[in-house]
Design a binder for these strands. Structure first.
Lengths: 332, 332
DNA sequence: CGACTGGGAGGGACCGCTCCCACGAACGGC
DNA sequence: GCCGTTCGTGGGAGCGGTCCCTCCCAGTCG
């Protein structure tokens, strides 16, 4: 191996590879030369077996990849994560969790293949991840879902969370409609088994509660354009009129807009819209949408930073809430 | 450890964990019980060090994640890959390649962390991956780019490729416009450093070459909606008229449509459109687009299958070309 | 000039698992 | 009843690193 060619011991090779300060320049150059000619790459398995470190971090993503991938939100957050991790010694890996074979994911995570895990967009359904942090450093991007509800099986370990205040954000977006003279405000809410869906409906309700309106103008979508379409169709089919609507994601808003256009309903003339996520859809629909912007990239950075600190054993705040801001466009 | 609690040797534990047939039912139940009470998860590093297998496969994705994620094509292909791998013992991992620190990716891939790698959408720029297959089983989803050009540094090892015939597909799509009476056919081509972009332009040229048309009605985009927008603006700004256009991706077509609408140019009245990728954009734009459909999920399955066979040392065809088909809609 | 000091290099145990080999018991055939 | 098989099990040698401990040698000081 390398040690023989360089004429030194394995210990010295290890020191050179790990940039230990106490090595003679001569030894360093001999070893690097040997590494070069041999095309040597240290075996990660052996290394992590001995050192109990892998320097890789996993982002766990649900198997139903289509939804995950198509949402610019995740792309941006992951970009933020990757950016931060790029400056560290950690490698980022996205782990596709096969729902049919959860033990594969478990083996990977608990078998020491990674130093820590990131969970974005947690569903109420996969409660397994709530326990993960007792085995492994874990950070949730967005509050995990069961925290709203009583723990069903044993105590849930304290989880580290980086989130935005979805309730406040949607209250703001809904009030904005009211402040601009709209009186009957509907909403298209997201999936109720995800915090972003749940909390944004809570926020809408909070704003509506301050008015005399009957809070029943709700339809549900799955955060995708087709989901927004069918939710809007459902809302229109009910025959109740509304002059403003808060839509829980710009992708749904995009789908909903198509339906409004079909029905000859003008925006913002007949119906004003506010939504969440300042992405391509919000910026480029007709008209461009007034929306709540989340600091997506910063969110990613913060999540990554939190996890790395956790791995290093530093003490980190359990909850970090990032600010949002409202961007005014032509849809109101 | 587990062996002590179960009252057997480590060898027997290993046999049980690896489902070896030659173990007494009694021993099996004793070991599984011990595993259960101890919450034992085998250490992957130790295991892969000893067995030289990791049972994980990486999809390498370029750092500029935004483009990658937002393209439904990748989501579908990866879904296909994940589906196939879900039925095997392999775990799928997406490796975000930090371009600023290529050695991190190299260590991960060549350091024995994975049994094989998948490369989707290879750019001409990252030639490093062309050599990867001499170290590791590798399959390219879509022909790697330098294959068109003379090797610049040493011999390129033979790479396994799963692809669609992009040239034929775009020729078909362009001819379709001609067959429907269009006479001046433009194109919005994709990035020329990617095979999908390059080949689709070649295909368009091939169809145009059969006509008397001057083949200069080309603008370039980056496969995204904004890219399609600016390409269309550029095309219109040139002042040359055209009554048909082949757009190399439906996302670009989506952006281009916005511009046509702005300019009051009707589709298909004034300009007919064909494109590639039967995704949400093609199906839901106004009007819905005639397009070439790629068998995206099947492509993923085929890619995964090929890689697993390669890892198992089976002999596999170096090139597998999947069929495409044209779907007629209202844009022509 | 000898003893002390400290930094660089080597030796070997060990990380947790796999896998080969050897051992012993049970069983069947002659 | 003895020997040859077969099958389950245990023992031990690695896999390729890390890291602690020891050793050696050169430089310094009394």
């Amino acid at each position: 191996m390398v040690a023989a060619l360089a004429g030194v011991s394995r210990s010295t090779v290890s020191r050179v590879v790990n940039a230990s300060p106490r090595v003679t320049p001569g030894a360093i150059s001999a070893v690097t030369a040997a590494i070069e000619t041999l095309g040597y790459v240290p075996n990660q398995a052996a290394r992590s077996l001995a050192s109990r470190k892998t320097y890789t971090i996993a982002v766990i993503i649900p198997e139903n990849t289509a939804k995950f991938f198509s949402d610019p939100y995740f792309a941006s957050v992951i970009h933020g994560v990757a950016t931060h991790l790029g400056n560290t010694e950690y490698t980022l890996t996205l782990l596709i969790a096969s729902e049919a074979h959860p033990e594969k994911t478990r083996r990977y995570l608990q078998g020491g293949s990674v130093d820590g895990a990131l969970i974005l967009s947690h569903h109420a359904d996969d409660s397994s991840y709530l326990q993960l942090s007792s085995t492994l450093p874990v950070v949730f991007g967005g509050r995990p879902m069961s925290n709203t509800r009583p723990a069903d099986a044993g105590p849930v370990p304290r989880n580290h969370i980086v989130d935005v205040d979805n309730v406040a954000a949607s209250t703001t977006a809904t009030r904005y409609l009211l402040e601009h003279g709209r009186r009957r405000i509907a909403t298209i809410a997201g999936p109720q088994n995800m915090a972003a869906g749940f909390d944004r409906l809570v926020g809408w309700r909070a704003a509506i509660a301050e008015t005399a309106q009957n809070p029943d103008l709700v339809a549900f979508g799955d955060f995708t354009p087709p989901g927004g379409e069918s939710a809007m169709r459902e809302l229109l089919a009910r025959g109740e009129s509304f002059d403003g609507i808060f839509i829980a994601s710009s992708q749904m808003a995009f789908g909903a807009l198509r339906v409004l256009r079909e029905h000859g309903i003008s925006v913002p003339g007949d119906v004003a819209i506010t939504t969440v996520d300042n992405d391509y859809f919000a910026q480029n629909s007709t008209p461009p949408l007034t929306c709540i912007e989340q600091p997506v990239a910063e969110l990613g950075v913060e999540i990554a930073q939190t996890l790395v600190r956790l791995i290093n054993g530093e003490s980190v705040a359990e909850l970090s809430v990032m600010p949002t801001r409202l961007i005014e466009r032509e849809s109101v």
